[in-house]
Amino acid sequence: MWRKSGRFQSLAHATAGEMPAKRSCPGISRDIALLLLFATDDLAAESVAGTCNSEAVSHHGLERDFCSSVILSLPIPIMCGAISAIQGHVLGLRR
């Protein structure tokens, strides 16, 4: 996981107190921006729908359709990163 540059970048921005996703995707919600902080680029786009049904999305209090529309509107690498972040968060909730 750490070999993927996205996770490094997310942590680098986190420790520096920055929100890079907000710069690249102005207007999206803070929750989505936080998810995008963990952008990686190696997940399949097909899992978007399933991920948007996840408990993580519910946990963030986001509407599923809104979340789907935001994610689907993003460039594929960023979109996939959002999926990865949500999945990681689900794991955190289940621990």
């Binding site: 996981m1 070999r3 190696d42 997940l43 399949a44 899992s47 990865s84 990681g88 689900v90 794991l91």
Partner: peptide, 12 residues
């Protein structure tokens, strides 16, 4: 807290 394999394992 977030070792590689736990997150890696969820990739589809």
């Amino acid at each position: 807290a977030g070792p590689d394999d736990r997150i890696e394992g969820t990739a589809t």
